[in-house]
Nucleic acid binder design. Structure first.
Length: 847
RNA sequence: GGGGCGAUGGCGGAAUUGGUAGACGCGUUGGUCUUAGGAACCAAUAUGGCAACAUGUGAAGGUUCGAGUCCUUUUCGCCCUACCA
């Protein structure tokens, strides 16, 4: 028997799909659309297993929807601006564009070898002027809408990469790429006014019912809405400072206040800018480590001012004002009032500086002994020691009452505060989208006129070691608009801007007038299923949601609020890690094993230390190259394996045994196919078609259900069962017609998963290649004979074959006749019978 | 500190959503064929027991005729987030 030649057959079908433009898509209003999108890759050079998993999951869905008769949009592109290109250029003295384009062409051919159903006619690349021209238009459009502005601000400066980082790109106080300690620096920056949509971005999360809850929770926390009020405190002893305003979520604890703490960056710090002690304190605050432990263990430090603040609810309560290291200028108003009894930080601070601890909330109304000593009480309870607030239920009633009082007496106002900050998009980098702005002699920004777009990124011959080469490119920097001299903005846009609208561009990839055509996004948007890694749960997804709101803001023709209707976050691909005994990482290629337990290095047979399985990464060398695997086992085997071992949303363990087993399984399916071709040609006279038809019908239901619910690992199990069943059941039992009819349907169900193999089998069987997904018949799922579980006192004691709808009474008679079952009853008194038709009978007897 | 998720054989994982726990795969064991097999095929594989049977979904309780699934408490693990006022 001829073995399955995956090389020949996979090449054949990939060529067929390409020659026939099988996956190119046009608007077709007679069909329902389905927009299936996987997060596009950064062209780093080669695809990795994470891509294989991501794009296989998406392809299964896209092909399934195509078979179901949807008009499927399944595009692919390249997130091709960004620092690696620039770094490679510096290191190897070449042009980032050349490097990027070579990578794209290599990765594209790798992706094609996976047999993905992608409409390559819609391919886009964000580093091309055809793409970023429209991004510049959007920038100016948002500028006109007041959603883009420029301000001087402290920024996170990465001294190694010589660039500004967004808050989200700073992890544990270090740059997310360079790992260098991030410094604070004041620069003029461009911002997107994302905080304008805080409420909307939060509210809309409720409408995203096809998103993982986890991602919604993460975004909710990131947006960080808190309800409270602004309270104004009079300062009684200063000419310059009359008031300090604080934001609080717990105004009801005002009577327990014993100090005010403000950030060292608070405006009142101006009063102390010449105070040597204060300067020293401020410096101390900024050098406190930013690692997790440092923050957790950081001591609360204060610098006492001579200011005295008055409690607005009781003018006799006068408290000192401190600068404190735990108050951040970034959040709220950069000032808090301290109520040590009911906030742990305030309590730590109070104990250190010997401030009063006044308990004003107690768990019970009447517990007169309750007093906070060394642990702040933040639970529910009742207010006391607080004048007009006494005995109010806390926090619900007490907060509302306090805010009412403050507002009526002009002492404060209700306020909702968000943690979400505006998005700083300026990057001091070359390889990004130029910001379409120039400055006049006075430094005022001017929009580059539309007809002068795109502002093309000039070619750079030589890269200096650091900084932005655009700064030194005078012939590009100096520009004349309407006869006047201007200097260009040399910062480029954060690459997250590029990916914030690419899903719109896919709808109209060639449109020259604008980033998209309204009629086209009206048809295709929103993305029905977006698939990618959980690492983008906040940044990319939030920015994209913002961009959609920003573009449709004030444009009634675009009524799309949310870009991604469904979101699926796939797990990572993991592999064991290996190290030499002196701690150097080893790749799986460098090691071998004899017994599967002890591992040694191939070249010198030295012992290898096997570490835990972790997400594949270059730094740990635990990577498996998809290209080699495709070469050895074929794309279908890789697709099959990457789906089979774990549910797609969980991490999957790469294993040599696993991929080998998938390969073998395809061979097994191949021999099944040969066998069935032979059986069909024999045309048996017998026909117990009912069995096969019934089986096929159940199988189709399972396949459809599991495809709909992303249970792809269970789907593969269904295929294994099918293979075993057909191998057993198809010998000498069916007429050609019955067998061909059912087998044809089964083969179609393999198309989404192992498309080359399934296409080849369809062709060999002379079945049509383009067929619709076979639907199952709901009526035929009903079995005439059913198995009834028999329980005695809730314990399973056996099974009973019975006709459908058999009554409780008759089943009891059956049980009495059954030798295995009747011994349990043994003339004992039946107290109760629980009977669920066609399912279970539970007999309760006296013991 | 706050939030989220999870815990099922040697391993990855199934379980129609309250109704036969362990589908399917890996691994292991035995067998067939073979010069040989790291190939193919067949069989077994939760635990204890010769068996009947008993036990069994991190732990303890509860609801129920019936709980992996629901409720309460608890332990452990993973992830996110963080001096957020």
């Amino acid at each position: 028997m001829e073995r399955y030649n995956f090389k020949k057959i996979e090449d054949k079908w990939q060529k067929f799909w390409e020659d026939n433009n099988s996956f190119s898509t046009q608007i077709d209003h007679s069909k329902k659309k389905f927009y299936c999108l996987e997060m596009f890759p950064y062209p780093s050079g080669k695809i990795h297993m994470g891509h294989v998993r991501n794009y296989t999951i998406g392809d299964v869905l896209a092909r399934f929807k195509l078979l179901k008769g949807f008009n499927v949009l399944h595009p692919m592109g390249w997130d091709s601006f960004g620092m690696p290109a620039e770094n490679a250029a510096r290191q190897n003295n070449l042009d980032p564009r050349t490097w990027t384009e070579a990578n794209i062409s290599n990765m594209k051919s790798q992706l094609k070898k996976l047999g993905l159903s992608i409409d390559w006619n819609r391919e886009i690349s964000t580093c091309t002027p055809e793409y970023y021209k429209h991004q510049q238009e959007f920038f100016l459009e948002l500028y006109d809408k007041g959603l883009v502005y420029r301000k001087e601000q402290y920024v996170n400066w990465d001294p190694v990469d010589q660039t500004v980082l967004a808050n989200e790109q700073v992890i544990d106080g270090k740059g997310w790429r360079s790992g260098a300690n991030v410094e604070r620096k004041k620069l003029n920056q461009w911002f997107f006014n994302i905080s304008k949509f805080s409420e909307k971005l939060l509210e809309n999360l409720n409408t995203l019912d096809e998103w993982p809850n986890k991602v919604k929770v993460m975004q909710k926390n990131w947006i960080g809405k808190s309800f409270g009020c602004e309270v104004s405190f009079k300062i009684e002893n200063s000419k310059q400072i009359k008031n300090i305003n604080c934001f609080t979520t717990r105004p009801d604890t005002l009577f327990g206040m014993s100090f005010i703490a403000v950030s060292v960056d608070h405006p009142i710090s101006k009063l102390y800018e010449n105070d040597k002690e204060f300067i020293k304190f401020k410096k101390e605050c900024s050098t406190t480590g930013t690692t997790e432990e440092a923050i957790a263990n950081a001591e609360k430090l204060g610098f006492k001012t001579d200011l005295i603040a008055i409690n607005p609810l009781d003018n006799d309560i006068k408290v000192p004002v401190y600068f404190a290291n735990f108050v951040l200028m970034d959040y709220g108003l950069g000032a808090v009032f301290g109520c040590p009894a009911h906030d742990q930080r305030d309590l730590d601070f109070a104990l250190k500086y010997d401030l009063e601890v006044n308990t004003v909330v107690r768990p019970n109304k009447t517990d007169s002994t309750f007093k906070v000593i060394d642990k702040a009480y933040t639970g529910e309870g009742y207010i006391f020691n607080s004048s007009f607030l006494n005995n109010l239920k806390c926090p619900e009633d007490s907060i509302i009452t306090t805010i009412d009082y403050l507002e009526k007496n002009n002492l404060g106002k209700k306020q909702i505060n968000f943690r979400l900050k505006d998005w700083g998009v300026s990057r001091q980098r070359y390889w990004g989208c130029p910001i379409p702005i120039a400055y006049d002699e006075k430094g005022n920004p001017k929009k580059i006129p539309k007809e002068m777009l795109p502002v093309k990124l000039p070619n750079i011959k030589k890269f200096e070691t650091s900084g932005n080469p655009l700064d030194n490119l005078l012939e590009w920097k100096n520009i004349i608009i309407d006869g006047k001299k201007y200097v260009r903005e040399t910062d480029t846009l954060d690459t997250f801007v590029d990916s914030s609208w690419y899903f719109l561009r896919f709808c109209s990839p060639k449109n020259k007038d604008y980033g998209f055509e309204e009629s086209e996004i009206k048809y295709w948007m929103p993305v029905d299923q977006y698939i990618g890694g959980i690492e983008h749960a906040i940044l990319h997804l939030l920015y994209s949601r913002f961009f959609m709101l920003a573009i449709s803001d004030g444009n009634k023709k675009i009524d799309i609020d949310e870009p991604f209707k469904g979101l699926f976050t796939q797990g990572m691909v993991c592999h064991e890690t290996y190290k030499t005994q002196d701690g150097n990482w080893l790749s799986p290629d460098e090691i071998q094993t004899i017994d599967g337990e002890k591992f040694e290095k191939k070249d010198n047979t030295k012992k290898v230390v096997v570490g835990p399985s972790e997400s594949m990464s270059k730094s740990k060398k635990n990577i498996i190259d998809p290209e080699k695997i495709i070469q050895n086992y074929g794309a279908d085997a890789v697709r099959l394996f990457i789906l089979s071992d774990s549910p797609p949303e969980k991490d999957v363990q790469w294993s040599d045994e696993g991929i080998a087993s998938s390969y073998k399984f395809i061979q097994k399916l191949w021999s099944l196919n040969q066998k069935i071709i032979l059986e069909i040609s024999r045309n048996h006279k017998f026909d117990s078609s009912e069995n096969l038809e019934k089986y096929t019908n159940i199988y189709l239901k399972k396949m459809s259900d599991n495809l709909d619910s992303f249970s792809y690992n269970v789907l593969i199990a269904n295929i294994h069962e099918m293979c075993t069943y057909l191998n057993k059941e198809t010998s000498n039992k069916y007429t050609s017609k019955t067998l061909a009819n059912n087998y044809n349907k089964i083969l179609i169900t393999l198309l989404p998963i192992i498309p080359h193999f399934a296409s080849e089998c369809l062709e060999l069987n002379k079945f049509k290649i383009n067929q619709e997904w076979p639907e199952y018949d709901e009526k035929k799922l009903i079995e005439e004979n059913v198995k009834i579980v028999v329980q005695i006192n809730g314990k399973k004691r056996g099974l009973l074959q019975a006709k459908r709808e058999r009554s409780e009474k008759n089943l009891l008679l059956d049980i009495e006749k059954d030798n295995k079952l009747n011994k349990y009853l043994n003339n004992k008194k039946i107290l109760k019978v629980v009977f669920i038709k066609n399912k279970i009978i539970n007999i309760i007897i006296k013991q």
